[in-house]
Amino acid sequence: MSEKNSFGRRTWDKEEFSKQGALRREKEQNKTIEKVEGVSQIDRDSLNFNKDLNKRQVIASNVVSTRGKSFGFYCEVCDLTFKDNLKYVDHLNSKPHLIRSGELNQQIEVTLDDVKQRYEMLVKKMEEQQNDDEKYDIKKRIAKRQAFEEELKRKRQTKKPKPVEQKTNVSTNNNDKDDNMMSMMGFSGFGSTKK
């Protein structure tokens, strides 16, 4: 691999060494990064970056780790946290993460049948969702109507006794004697209060 040239200096077979280096690096990588068993892939559909906006999250104090959970975007698979969403997604797309989560060799080449299968699944999903929406709508409408009717009842109940109280109050202030007599006789005041 190394020879001495005519000046007595050693020359290096660069190609050979770079090959060795690449091999060693690959070995090291394979040693340090292994698929983490029992982790699910992080679902990109559910990555909604606006979901936790303006919310405070309580982080358990017993999680003592220099890397682990802290403020930001957390990768469960690698136990790492990222300060902004682009860095987080870059991480999700990075080779070490993909090896750990077992997503590395995703099938790129698909057949028409694969596509049709996925399509049928999505059509079904859409139709189910539409049905759910309709059911939900009807329930919602019934609930709304019930609430409205109860409100109406309550209003009626509270409205009725009010005027009576007012009248009695007013009349007691004016002249007690007459009022007593009148209430005994079954009516409560003349002309002064309009119906």
């Binding site: 990109r44 970056f49 997604v89 080449e109 694969d114 299968q117």
Partner: peptide
């Protein structure tokens, strides 16, 4: 873009339908 990195990575012509629809 975030959309590209989030949704257009590691997809094939079948999985991409999830986003297309």
């Amino acid at each position: 873009s975030l959309y590209w990195k989030q949704y257009c990575f590691n997809v094939n012509a079948a999985l991409i339908l999830d986003r297309c629809v």
